[in-house]
């Protein structure tokens, strides 16, 4: 599973620093995130992993006191350059959140939401997008007979896969996942993990998780964050069997965290 290929980076982060007011949350981050692989971000609570992933689609800017320094390139484009359109970045970089957040609409409308906003009106095309996305998120078989029912009626795990399908429906290149299974039971977690494994054929996935076993199971590369710094970034297999840094070893072996 951990066949580390030499691929183009989808994200290139250089000397990136971020502050919330006076508190520095990210320190000198430099990373290259590979395309069409699963990159896991692990680390203890408060280490900056969520902040980091939210920076990649600029959602972090919703917090008013944020200050940033350094550069992040998405496919050779500086995401912070003055004329960069944050909406088009977010169309190419989808996001799945910690807690499933479907819209209070039907299953169908949840998926068709993004495509409709981006101008697709044709019913037939929408039908296809909905079916394809739900199949992609391994949810189609469970919901195909009740597409018009409210999404709030689905179980937590189904809702999370619905959110993944919703993100896929706008055909992104990257899907960011911020602890997508932390609110799910073990069975639903297994389903989502299985799904992530499938998805990396078509998408670059960056996943934040506090669950080290999960990172080991699903990722190709892992970055270990501690106090806002990247301590180690390597192929997952190598990191788990033979970590470079003592602190990584301590964290992975459960000495803290």
């Amino acid at each position: 599973m951990n066949d580390v290929k030499n691929t183009h980076p989808v994200y290139t982060i250089k000397d990136f620093n971020l502050w919330y007011g006076e508190t520095q949350a990210l320190k000198n981050i430099s990373l290259e995130i590979p395309e069409k692989q699963v990159t896991a971000i692990i680390g203890p609570s408060g280490c900056g992993k969520s902040t980091f992933i939210k920076t990649l689609n600029r959602m972090v800017e919703l917090i008013p006191s944020v200050k940033m320094e350094g550069s992040i390139h998405y496919k050779n484009e500086d995401i912070f350059k003055p004329n960069a359109k944050v909406e088009s970045l977010r169309t190419e970089v989808g996001m799945v959140f910690q807690k499933p957040n479907p819209f209070p609409k039907s299953i169908y409308d949840n998926i068709a939401y993004g495509p409709r906003i981006h101008g697709i009106k044709d019913k037939k095309t929408l039908d296809e997008v909905v079916e394809k996305s739900l199949k992609g998120a391994a949810l189609w078989e469970e919901v195909k007979d009740r597409l018009n029912e409210n999404a709030f009626g689905l179980s937590g795990g189904q809702q999370q896969r619905l959110c993944i399908a919703r993100a896929m429906a706008v055909e992104p290149e990257v899907i960011l996942m911020d602890e997508p299974t932390s609110a799910l039971d073990p069975l639903s977690t297994a389903k989502v993990e299985e799904l992530i494994h499938e998805l990396k054929n078509d998408y670059s996935i960056i996943i934040v998780t506090h669950n080290m076993q999960q990172a080991a199971r699903i990722s190709d590369k892992t970055a270990f964050f501690l106090n806002g710094e990247v301590i180690e970034f390597d192929a997952t297999e190598k990191m788990y069997s033979n970590p470079h840094d003592k602190r990584t070893d301590d964290y992975i072996s459960g000495k803290f965290g």
């Binding site: 689609n57 959602m59 919703l62 909406e87 088009s88 970045l89 977010r90 169309t91 989808g94 996001m95 959140f97 807690k99 957040n101 479907p102 819209f103 939401y113 993004g114 906003i117 981006h118 959110c163 919703r166 993100a167 706008v170």
Partner: peptide, 13 residues
Amino acid sequence: PSSQREGGLALGL
């Protein structure tokens, strides 16, 4: 809930 707003923004709205 702000998660709804974030859900929309994350879709590129």
